[in-house]
């Protein structure tokens, strides 16, 4: 298999490297990719949408139909992961570990579904138990709120600086994943449960599609934000800029929800009893 692989990549790679001789020079402003469509975007995105970041303007306005289905693809990936891994059945052999806090003795209890997780004397632990780590928990507890505020800033400031819904949503999800790693999966499930994460991602996709439907309602094409000026009390150009913000918020919610959902499923392999 190794020899076949080496022969294949050498053949195809030499053909590909030979084909680079016909490519335009790297960084040539007059290459075909740089002269047709993108010139229109660079010249007209500011008068059309009043958004300085051209990438955000194209992403959420000119090509917003594309972005809507990219968001749907991400949601579908979260759903596929859930359907593959989620395990609702509790096996009879399933046991959980409880640690007696004063002595440190660990008990293995079968059929422990109706027992409380944490009492004064007993504490439920994962199969790979690590001692209480003050430094990690305090540091991550201090840093998580700031990461979340930064994520909100990235979503809201995507018009003027690099950033937007995708990045902000991923950072928001990553902050919560940091919390879930430094504490435990059960404690993070108390804050954002599986149901909340799913509802978050569904609401995000629905905000996006709902903005498009609202445009239909006011008598223009799907996702043509200019007609929203009637309810936002502004001119059509500012209405586009505001509608891009709504859409980015929807994308951010969807991506954050799906990231948390994927982490729950992969780290506990679908059982939701213990995490990383």
């Amino acid at each position: 298999m190794k020899i076949i692989g080496i022969i294949t990549i050498l053949l195809s790679g030499s053909i590909m490297i030979y084909s680079t001789l016909d490519f335009p020079e790297w960084g040539d402003p007059l290459s075909p990719a740089n002269t047709h469509l993108s010139v229109y975007y660079i010249e007209n995105s500011m008068p059309d949408t009043s958004v300085p970041n051209i990438v955000t303007a194209i992403l959420a306005d000119y090509r917003s139909y594309d972005t809507m289905f990219e968001t749907t693809v991400i949601f579908a990936a979260g759903l596929a992961c859930f359907l593959l891994l989620r395990n609702f059945r509790k096996k009879k052999k399933e046991y959980s570990l409880y640690r007696h806090i004063p002595t440190g003795v660990t008990l293995k209890i079968k059929n422990s579904a109706d027992l409380a997780d944490d009492t004064k004397l007993f504490q439920r632990i994962d199969s790979t138990w690590v001692p209480f780590d003050l430094v990690t928990r305090t540091a991550s507890g201090l840093i998580v709120p700031f990461i979340q505020i930064f994520a909100l800033y990235v979503i809201a400031h995507g018009h003027h600086s690099p950033g937007g819904g995708f990045q902000g949503g991923v950072i928001f999800g990553a902050a919560f994943i940091l919390f879930a790693i430094s504490y435990s999966l059960r404690e993070s499930l108390k804050i954002i449960s599986e149901k909340t994460a799913v509802i978050l991602s569904c609401v995000g996709v629905m905000i996006y599609a709902g903005t498009g439907l609202l445009c239909l309602l006011f008598g223009s094409n799907f996702l043509n934000y200019g007609s929203l000026a009637q309810i936002l009390f502004t001119d059509p150009v500012s209405a586009r800029s505001l509608a891009i913000l709504f859409v980015e918020i929807g994308v951010g919610l969807a991506v954050a929800g799906v990231m948390i959902w994927l982490y729950y499923n992969i780290s506990s392999s679908g059982k939701y009893n213990q995490g990383l």
Binding site: A33, N34, L37, S38, Y41, I42, I54, V55, I58, L59, R63, D66, T67, E70, V73, I74, A77, G78, A80, C81, L84, F166, V170, V255, V258, M259, L262, N265, I266
Partner: peptide
């Protein structure tokens, strides 16, 4: 810089992490 490839690839990266999860 030409912004159009950036837009196409920005969504591709986020989709790539979703496919990585699957």
């Amino acid at each position: 810089v030409n912004p159009l490839p950036h837009v196409l690839m920005l969504t591709a990266i986020v989709v790539s992490v979703a496919t990585l999860g699957v």
